[in-house]
Design a binder for these strands. Structure first.
Length: 486
RNA sequence: GGUCGGUUGGCCGAGUGGCUAGGCACUGGUCUGCAAAACCACGUACGGCGGUUCGAAUCCGCCACCGACCUCCA
C-alpha cells in the first residue's frame, strides 16, 4: 500500500503531502447541508467527494473522525435586521414547527445519501444542539477583543483582526478591495464596517428560533457553528476542512478568523474544496432555481430528464470528473456514465468466476501501482477509473483464455478490483426488486423457450422473447443457455 | 468593477514540454437460427494570434468567449 497521499490545499494553492497532525488519527470536518429543502445534485458533490476521501483515508489505515454538520439555524436571509432564519421562514410557510422541518429534511437527506452509498460521518452535529458552545466562542472572541456588541448583537471586527492577522488569506482577497466592493445592504448601520459579520444576532419579535444569551434573545451567526462544532469534536487544531468552493468566501474565511481570534491559533491544516455542478454551463443552485433534486434523478420525474438515473449512476457520474473541476450535467453524460458503470460492474462479476491458470502471462503490479498513484494524486478518481477500465479489458482477455494468471495473481487482481471499485469508489450493484417467485417463473418460461429453440421452433422462441422484452425483461442467448435481467 | 478559474476530438472528461488517458456514441468485425447483449478493432482533439524552445495542447504575452466568488448557496 502506497501511503504517499498528496492533496491540494486551498489555503496554499498547492498540492501538499498529507501529514496528519497526530497520526494515525485524522480529523475531518465537512460543511453539510442546510436542511430546508430536498438535496439536489449539487449536494451530492461534496458528500461523494469527501466520502471518497474518508474511504481512502480509512483504507490507508488512518483512524478518521469524520464530522459533517447539519445546519438547522442561523442562516440569515440577507444579514439585515429583519433577516429571517431560512428554517424559520420555511416553517411559517408550511405551518410547521421549525424542528419539524429540520427533522423531515434531515431524514430525506439521509435517505438520499444512503442511496448514493455515502457513508455516514462519525458525528453529525446540529447547530441547534450547540448553542452553548457557540455562545462560549462568542465570549472568547469578545474577550480577545476582536468583536463588539451593539444593541444585543455581536459582530466580528474584521478591521481590527486584519491589523494583526490576514483576513482574506484563504480567498485571496485584500481588505482594501473588499471595502470598495462590499455591497451596501439594508440594516447594516449597526456594524462598524460593512464586511463585519454577525457572531450573535438579536432576534426580531417575529423571529421564531431564538435562544437566551447575555447579549439578547437571539441566534448565532451562520459562520460560527462550524467553528464551534469543529473545535468541540476535533480540537483547536485539526487536519482537514472540506466543503464546496462556494463556501470559500465568506464562510470559510470567517471560520478561520473566528477560530484564530478565539483560540489564538490557526485551526485547519488542509482546506479542500470541491467544485460546482453546472447545468447549461451555470452553477446548479438553490437560489438560481435551476436545480434537480436527487429524488427527481432517481425517479426521472423532471422535465429535463430523459429517464430516471440510478443513485449509482449519479455517483459514478460525479466520480468520473475530478473533484476540483466543474462537471456539467446533461442527459447524454449521465447515460454515458450509466453504460460505463454497467461495464465496470459486470466485469467485476466475470472476475469472480475466473479460474486460475498455471502461470501468469501478465504482470498485475503496474496496474496496482497505477491505481494507488491516481488516488494519491489529489484523489484523481477519473484516472483511477481509467485504470480500472484497463483491468476490465484484462478481465475479458482472461475470460477468453488469451491471458492467464496463477492462483496468487488472480487473488491479487480480485482484491485490487474489489478494493478500488467497491471499497474506495463506493460503487455497488443496484438492489433488484424481483421476488423469488418471479425469478422462478421467468426461468421456467425461458427453459421452455430453450426447448423450442432446440426443436427449431423459432416462431415460438421469438414470441416468448418479444413478449418478455415488452415486459422489460432483457434476454441474452448464450452458447447453451440464456441470461436475463430486468 | 475586483479576485480567481476555465476554453481538449460528435458528447463527457483526464493529462502533460517530446512517449497520442478513459468512458459514451459512430463505424467495421467476432459470436448467433435471427436479434439483442458481450467482446475485439477504430479517431493524433487541445479557443485565436504572437513569443520562448530542437520540439508546446502543455511555459510566457495579448485577445476573444464562458463561469465561480464578491449576498444565502454544496
Amino acid at each position: 500500500m502506497d501511503k504517499n497521499l498528496i492533496i491540494y490545499n486551498s489555503l496554499t494553492r498547492k498540492k501538499e503531502t498529507f501529514e496528519p497532525i497526530n497520526p494515525p488519527y485524522v480529523g475531518l470536518y465537512v460543511c453539510g447541508p442546510t436542511v430546508y429543502g430536498d438535496a439536489h445534485l449539487g449536494h451530492a458533490r461534496p458528500a461523494i467527494t469527501f466520502d471518497l476521501l474518508y474511504r481512502y483515508l480509512k483504507h490507508l489505515d488512518y483512524k478518521v473522525r469524520y464530522v459533517r454538520n447539519i445546519t438547522d439555524v442561523g442562516h440569515l436571509e440577507n444579514d439585515a435586521d429583519e433577516g429571517e432564519d431560512k428554517i424559520a421562514k420555511k416553517a411559517r410557510l408550511e405551518q410547521l414547527e421549525p424542528m419539524e422541518v429540520v427533522e423531515y429534511y434531515t431524514h430525506r437527506y439521509h435517505e438520499n445519501m444512503d442511496a448514493l452509498n455515502v457513508l455516514r460521518p462519525s458525528i453529525e452535529p446540529k447547530a441547534s444542539g450547540h448553542i452553548i458552545e457557540q455562545q462560549e466562542m462568542v465570549r472568547n472572541i469578545l474577550q480577545s477583543g476582536f468583536a463588539y456588541e451593539v444593541n444585543g448583537s455581536v459582530y466580528f471586527d474584521v478591521e481590527k483582526y486584519n491589523q494583526t492577522h490576514d483576513y482574506g488569506k484563504l480567498s485571496g482577497r485584500k481588505l482594501e478591495d473588499m471595502q470598495a466592493n462590499t455591497r451596501q445592504l439594508e440594516g447594516q448601520e449597526e456594524k462598524k464596517n460593512p464586511y463585519d459579520f454577525a457572531l450573535w444576532k438579536k432576534a426580531s419579535p417575529e423571529h421564531i428560533m431564538r435562544w437566551p444569551s447575555t447579549w439578547s434573545n437571539g441566534f448565532p451567526g451562520w459562520h460560527l457553528e462550524c467553528s464551534a462544532m469543529s473545535t468541540k469534536y476535533l480540537g483547536e487544531q485539526f487536519d482537514i476542512h472540506g466543503g464546496g468552493m462556494d463556501l470559500l468566501f465568506p464562510h470559510h474565511e470567517c471560520e478561520i478568523a473566528q477560530s484564530t481570534a478565539a483560540n489564538g491559533k490557526e485551526s485547519v491544516k488542509y482546506w479542500m474544496h470541491n467544485n460546482m455542478i453546472t447545468i447549461n454551463g451555470q452553477k446548479m443552485g438553490k437560489s438560481l432555481g435551476n436545480f434537480i433534486t436527487l429524488d427527481e434523478f432517481f425517479s426521472g420525474n423532471h422535465k429535463v430528464l430523459d429517464k430516471p438515473y440510478s443513485p449509482m449512476t449519479v455517483r459514478f457520474f460525479i466520480l468520473q470528473a475530478h473533484y476540483r473541476s466543474t462537471v456539467d450535467f446533461s442527459n447524454e453524460a449521465l447515460q454515458a456514465a450509466e453504460k460505463g458503470l454497467e461495464r465496470l460492474l459486470k466485469a467485476g462479476k466475470v472476475l469472480q468466476q475466473l479460474r486460475a491458470g498455471k502461470e501468469s502471462t501478465i504482470n498485475i503490479k503496474p496496474l496496482k501501482d497505477n491505481c494507488y498513484q491516481a488516488m494519491n494524486d489529489d484523489l484523481n478518481s477519473p484516472i483511477l477509473i481509467a485504470h480500472l477500465f484497463e483491468a476490465v479489458r484484462l478481465i475479458h482477455l482472461l475470460k477468453e483464455g488469451k491471458e492467464n494468471l496463477n492462483t496468487n495473481d488472480l487473488e491479487q487482481l480480485k482484491n485490487l478490483y474489489h478494493t478500488f471499485v467497491y471499497d474506495i469508489l463506493g460503487l455497488q450493484e443496484e438492489a433488484s426488486d424481483r421476488s423469488e417467485l418471479t425469478s422462478d417463473l421467468i426461468d421456467m418460461i425461458l427453459t421452455l423457450r430453450l426447448e423450442a429453440k432446440k426443436n427449431k421452433d423459432f416462431d415460438t422462441a421469438d414470441k416468448i422473447r418479444d413478449e418478455l422484452t415488452q415486459k422489460g425483461i432483457k434476454i441474452k442467448d448464450t452458447k447453451d443457455g440464456y441470461e436475463w435481467e430486468v
